[in-house]
Design a protein around this nucleic acid. Structure first.
Lengths: 307, 307
DNA sequence: CTTGTTGATAGCTTTTCATTATCAAAAACA
DNA sequence: TGTTTTTGATAATGAAAAGCTATCAACAAG
């Protein structure tokens, strides 16, 4: 590493002040210190650099060529230092500046458009950097500090992350048009799924596990094929390959673009809990409720869109 | 003026060290301080900026987004600071870097080519900024610190400048071809000028006063016309308007390009003393003899060129 | 359940930086 | 010319900052 620098920012301030005032006393006044303090500091700097910066004598204080160059660089350094302080001020509110946000793939396409808009409106100083990843990867990224906060579904092992609830996302039954269970619009009991063939996502998606446990009461058959995404899954259902459980958040988008019939499940309907999670004790902790509030309104809006 | 900055270069060094090592203890080792010193300084900086820079916890030390930005700026500032120190080192020798040099107009055209070459060869680190001005202006510029050193002729009022001799520049008689005094090549006595019409430079050139005092013994007549430069003066002589005294330094150049006859003056021949002058006590003081040595060799070379 | 590692904290010492008082040199004034 | 004023440098001293050693609490690894 670099050796300790033989100069201080204060010394540079003093040098610039003298260069501007061409007068030690007035410069000291500008710096709000006594004149000897300034004289001593400048002498110390000249000693440390081995260079005369000022020429003291008749005709007042003048700069040596070396001093001329050093003053120019000093101004540059001081400007950069003030910029650093400004930057820090901008970051004082954790909800200003860049924030690395994660979201799971079964939520991203349905929530992101709405959430991005909400953030732009309600937290204009925030610059979100969205990363789409599955729960496992998100938890690791949060733990390791590669990510600041994330939107995911509970019943995952969040180790020691903190979280706040954003909303409850109930499951609906999706069936191909013409299927027996596609008749009627009222709630369907889970018992009706008995013996039906169910389509699920591939391993690694928390939604897969949640859907499985929702069906756990009914003896259903899982198809060999496992979809890589919700849109694919819905396409499969539409083509008559089987049934599936869809979270309400996906309904407005998915039911609109594929010929599937959707029906709610009978109360108490199974649901997944959407949360905002962050590393416990992270810089976000205090501001997390504010962020969660904004996101919650977005999530609620999406859940209300259900046809 | 700017308020005192709430941060120190050392703090920035510590921050960068921790960011690099992602480890307080190792960073402290790199900085050659005990770990608590580093912890305290970083805590103080975080307090001063009102921003968490590092996230301490499982998985080691990580940067907050604010920290990421601050570290980048810190690196920038530290780099600039080291550059400043480097710059100072380059200026430690006053004969390295820029030097503002003055020279009087009656020397400039004859000495500068030679001197510039000598400096380039013998003081390669020196970057001379030549300014041509008359003695009066040069003395003022030196006093006021607008110039660092100058080449001029003595018998000027140098007030409290210091100086070193560079050489003696004896006067020669210049006459038009065919003029009575142009016969023969041997030394001419000043008495021979009795009653001759002399051409001189305009007011303000020290050479004018020096030539006048050289002729003071002989009753000569000065022409109404006063030349603005030595080349002009020589042209006037060549055209038969009169005689003049030329310093030897100008002979090689002037006698070669105008049809004038040049003869030395009888011993003890009048001369002007060429010196290097600088502000007493200026940063140049210690290095002036070295500079003068280089210049003296150049001046001697020019004076030897005489045909 | 110990053991080793992390960064934070406490108590004390050293260093740094500032203060006031004063000086010598140089301008400015009379 | 001699005084007065103004300049930056210096000395003595006190307060603040930053360092050190020792120790702590939290956590991970045996």
């Amino acid at each position: 590493m670099s050796a300790p620098l033989p100069l201080s920012l204060r010394q540079l301030q003093y040098v610039v002040a003298v260069a501007d005032a061409r007068h030690f006393r007035r410069a000291a006044e500008q710096c709000a210190v006594a004149q000897p303090a300034l004289s001593t500091q400048i002498a110390a700097l000249e000693e440390a650099l081995g260079v005369r910066i000022f020429e003291r004598g008749r005709g007042g204080v003048t700069l040596t060529p070396a001093g001329e160059a050093l003053v120019a660089r000093s101004r540059e350094i001081l400007r950069a230092s003030e910029a650093l302080v400004q930057e820090a001020r901008r970051h004082q509110d954790p909800l200003a500046g860049t924030l690395r946000l994660g979201i799971i793939p079964t939520l991203a396409p349905y929530l992101l458009p709405e959430l991005a808009t909400r953030i732009r409106q309600d937290l204009p100083a925030l610059v979100p950097r969205w990363v789409e990843e599955r729960t496992r990867g998100i938890v690791a990224a949060l733990q390791e500090g590669r990510m600041d906060a994330s939107i995911l579904a509970l019943e995952a092992d969040l180790e020691d992350l903190d979280w706040l609830e954003l909303g409850r996302d109930p499951f609906h039954l999706a069936a191909p048009r013409g299927h027996a269970l596609a008749e009627g619009r009222g709630p369907v009991g889970l018992g009706a799924l008995e013996g039906e063939r169910m389509l699920l996502l591939e391993d690694g998606h928390c939604l897969r596990d949640q859907a499985l446990s929702a069906c756990s009461g009914a003896r259903v058959e899982e198809l060999g094929y496992r979809a890589t995404s919700l849109p694919t899954l819905v396409q499969m259902v539409a083509s008559g390959a089987g049934l599936t459980l869809l979270p309400r958040s996906a309904l407005a988008t998915e039911a609109a673009r594929a010929p599937v019939q959707v029906r709610p499940l009978e109360e108490p309907a199974p649901f997944r809990t959407l949360v905002l999670a962050w590393r416990r004790g992270s810089f976000l902790s205090e501001a997390a409720p504010r962020l969660a509030g904004v996101l919650r309104r977005g999530v609620e809006a999406v859940l209300r869109e259900t046809p």
